[in-house]
Write a protein that binds this DNA or RNA. Structure first.
Length: 811
RNA sequence: GCGGACGUGGCGAAAUUGGCAGACGCGCAGGAUUUAGGAUCCUGUGCCGCAAGGUAUGCAGGUUCAAGCCCUGUCGUCCGCACCA
């Protein structure tokens, strides 16, 4: 068959075949998971996409195909598999599109979802579409709101002043990703921080458990490490430094109490409350306030990128006393101390902290060595393990942990402070001044304060608005709708107003895997029975970019739901893996502007879904980034074309053909193990190799063909089912057991052993697999090449590694 | 600066974890087929060399009978985080 419109010859009508099998799967409900089954369960999960206007790109199918392969194999192995898909559909691009076009986000979302779904279907994934969910569906976000209310009731949701990004020219609140280099992404205007009273979630309360329970799960190390680093646990002490002539003391957090004798000054953050509290006694308060304003004006970008030189102002009239040395020391404000970490104040030990050292140099402050081992005239010596304490009467001669512990004990004994653990992790800012998100189900009443809505009244529907732009003051568009926000207090029935902020994108995705287990339940986010049956997710694959936010947030919510008895497992995901990115042909990240974007629709159209799937798996190591290659796609198409012609080679015979039996058993083992270990590229290679074996053999029988089709089926489900059916094999591959291999039959009858002299191969001999060292040694010494190479040399020793190598060491 | 990943043919990559480097695919070359191109099939293909042989996993050392793999140093690329006291 020739396709005159394209260079690609159609050896079989993949388009027709693929549509046919997709229709059969739909009609027969082939991949529907049962909530009531005798089979062991297996819950495979991929991150549900944000249905953007651009549609799918070739990066999406990589993880989807991978877990589809795993799911398909698990089904053939007798598991009841749940492999669901849905839409994380709240979010900025849709909203921005609505602002531009005036089209309601709901309609945009609906269209985008339809497009995405058609694309996914065309690739032939074995998703259970009967469980499709959408975070923007009121029946879904009802439960997102319900979870929020539970968090509030347990004191884990609270309001706090927190700055947002605000574009001074568009007069619009911006998300962090809309701020580029301190400017508004769309208009280039200046972005400033405006303080808003926002909802926060106390994820910090779970910090320790989020670290500890990583021991309960099988996550790739990279993920564990970055979660641990992100949470950033540190151990140290809080120490009170009394203020001279004042009744207060300044509390600092330090991980190096062993250096306290070296604390020659203190620094507090510009936002520290003491600046206000003691404004009257600070002689240079105007200067200090000026510094504070400058610091507030700086964007995060400037604060981190541009500030290399330390700046600050001394607080005149406010000195502190080092509680251990008794020394009087000055206090500074500087923006290198952050209000958001620790106590917002530090004891500065310039001799043993890089930042303090730099600051001390700028302000000519004393640098006193209290840990020996470095050269403090050159740089701060920060080694906390090997340095020995000096000039520190209480701990002289001690080092490392011992010095630290002794000092903390002393501090506690004297009532100057206490041992303290700190985390870098901060509470989760849960408010967005945006339209396209879940309304926060809270009401403010003058009399009763913040009150949650009655749970029976959920969902609190997102109302229709006329304008999707935030207000001039950066409030959500809902703040322009008095008819919506004016309401009554659920507690006292008096006048009250609704919260007009909405939830962040991460809300709906923090619990979506629970909803799949029972997606239409009206009485609960899912029935206890369904949750207990399916949880935890057995295998969750997603991008590294979601490791610190989404993955941590959803673990937090899950633990909370565990604490209130909704779920029965402490962790949501038993296993987490991560895929690499697919790059453009030029080895760069795919992007419209670079013109290197490959559209999966075109690939499906020109080469077929099976080819797309096979190539995405063959492209390289699943966990690494890999560049797209059109020629690589063609190679996979060629492979499937050859497979399609396999039935032509079929001749009689029962069981596997003896000449190829070993290769077949080896391939069953290899493909099975490779799929389990996500080494899809070598699994495809093994199948290509087996096809070469078949081709070289010139003929195959029906068993040889059958096993090949089953092994290839998870990768190329359509063409393998088609060949299966055209050969009149029974039923469908989807209902056929995965083949088993026999370890003994994987062993070759004879092996080739390389004979080395001093590590260099000089000859090869072929011996039976059972040959022992004696036989091999004898054979080796008969080889001409070996005899020649050994001439004039004496043998020192001979090393034999069974099945691998025979090495003669000679001089 | 800190943390992580990585560096192997012309290209994408393999290498059972210390045992024949380059499986499998692309590309390329030669041949077959074809009116021609495309497609397909066969053969070859790390580099140097006619060959024997030599040489090769970013670079420099080390351990070992044996190193892509382990150790030390060094250079380079990519990703994440950004003064976390």
């Amino acid at each position: 068959m020739k396709d005159v419109f394209s260079e690609v010859t159609m050896y079989y009508d993949y388009s027709k075949i693929e549509k046919k099998w997709q229709a059969i799967w739909d009609e027969e409900g082939t991949f529907k998971a049962s909530n009531d089954s005798d089979k062991p369960k297996f819950y495979a999960l991929v991150e549900f996409p944000y249905p953007s206007g651009q549609g799918l790109h070739v990066g999406h199918p990589r993880p989807y195909t991978a877990l589809d392969i795993i799911s398909r194999k698990k089904r053939l192995e007798g598991y009841n598999v749940l492999f669901p898909m849905g839409w994380d559909a709240f979010g900025l691009p849709t909203e921005n599109y609505a602002i531009k076009t005036g089209i309601h986000p709901e309609i945009v979302t609906k269209n985008n979802v339809a497009h995405f779904k058609a694309q996914l279907k065309s690739i032939g994934y074995s998703f259970d579409w009967s469980r499709e969910i959408n975070t923007t569906d009121p029946n879904y976000y009802k439960w997102t709101q319900w979870i929020f209310i539970q968090l509030f009731k347990k004191g884990l949701a609270y309001k706090k002043e927190f700055p947002i990004n605000f574009c001074t020219s568009c007069k619009v609140g911006l998300a962090n990703e809309e701020v580029v280099a301190g400017k508004c992404e769309r208009c280039g205007g200046d972005v400033i921080h405006v303080v808003k009273n926002q909802w926060m979630l106390k994820i910090t309360e779970y910090a320790q458990r989020l670290i500890d329970d990583l021991d309960l799960v099988d996550y790739i190390d990279r993920v564990k490490t970055s979660q641990i680093n992100w949470i950033g646990r540190s151990e140290g002490a809080e120490v009170n430094f009394p203020l001279k002539d004042k009744s207060d003391s300044l509390t600092v957090y330090t991980t190096r109490p062993d250096t306290i004798y070296g604390a020659t000054y203190m620094v507090i953050s510009p936002e520290h409350p003491f600046v206000d509290k003691y404004a009257e006694s600070i002689e240079n308060i105007d200067e200090v306030m000026g510094y504070r304003e400058e610091a507030a004006k700086k964007s995060d970008f400037e604060r981190t990128e541009l500030v290399k030189d330390k700046t600050g102002v001394r607080l005149k009239g406010m000195d502190a006393v080092n509680p251990i040395s008794g020394e009087e020391i000055p206090v500074f404000v500087s923006d290198y101390v952050l209000m958001t970490y620790g106590t917002g104040a530090i004891m500065a030990v310039p001799a043993h902290d890089q930042r303090d050292y730099e600051f001390a140099k700028v302000f000519s402050l004393p640098i006193r060595e209290v840990i020996s081992g470095g050269d403090i005239s050159e740089a701060a010596y920060t080694d906390s393990e090997n340095g020995v304490a000096v000039n520190s009467p209480l701990i002289n001669g001690l080092k490392g942990k011992q010095a630290i512990d002794t000092m903390i004990e002393e501090i506690e004994k004297r009532g100057l402070g206490e041992r303290k653990v700190n985390y870098k992790l901060r509470d989760w800012v849960f408010s967005r001044q945006r339209y396209w998100g879940e309304p926060i189900p809270m009401v403010y009443c003058e009399k009763c304060g913040w009150q949650p809505l009655n749970e029976e009244s959920l969902p609190l529907m997102l109302p229709k608005v006329e304008n999707y732009l935030t207000t001039d003051t950066g409030e959500s568009p809902l703040a322009n709708m008095p008819e919506w926000y004016n309401t009554t207090c659920p507690k006292c029935g008096g006048k009250a107003t609704r919260e007009t902020d909405t939830m962040p994108n991460w809300a709906g995705s923090s619990w979506y895997y629970l909803r799949y287990t029972d997606p239409t339940n009206d009485d609960a986010l899912a029935s206890k029975k369904a949750l207990d049956y399916w949880l935890p997710v057995d295998w969750y694959n997603g991008g590294m970019e979601h490791t610190t936010l989404h993955l941590l947030y959803s673990r937090f919510w899950h633990k909370f739901l565990y604490d209130i008895g909704v779920v029965s497992t402490p962790e949501p995901y038993a296993k987490r893996t991560s895929h690499g990115m697919i790059l453009g042909e030029n080895n760069e990240k795919m992007s419209k502007s670079k013109g290197n974007v490959v559209n999966p629709d075109e690939v499906v159209e020109r080469y077929g879904a099976d080819t797309l799937r096979t190539y995405e798996m063959f492209i390289g190591d699943f966990t690494q980034a890999a560049p797209w290659s059109e020629n690589g796609v063609k190679g996979c198409k060629r492979f499937l074309d050859r497979v399609f012609k396999l039935p032509e080679m079929v001749q009689g015979g029962n069981g596997y053909s003896p000449a190829m039996e070993t290769a077949i058993h080896q391939t069953i083992r290899k493909v099975g193990e490779d799929i389990d270990n996500m080494k899809f590229n070598t699994a495809v290679a093994a199948l290509m190799k087996l096809l070469n074996v078949y081709t070289d053999n010139g003929k195959i029988n029906r068993e040889d063909l059958k096993v090949f089709l089953i092994l290839l089926n998870p990768f190329a489900p359509h063409v393998t089912e088609e060949i299966w059916s055209s050969c009149s094999f029974p039923s469908q591959i989807a209902k056929t057991p995965w083949p088993v291999y026999d370890e003994e039959k994987c062993v070759e009858a004879s092996v080739e052993i390389p004979i080395q002299i001093n590590g260099k191969v000089r000859a090869r001999i072929t011996v039976s697999a059972s040959a022992d060292e004696k036989e091999i040694s004898a054979a080796a010494h008969e080889c001409e090449g070996i005899i020649k190479a050994l001439e004039g040399k004496s043998i020192i020793k001979e090393i034999f590694v069974a099945g691998k190598i025979y090495n003669i060491v000679a001089k």
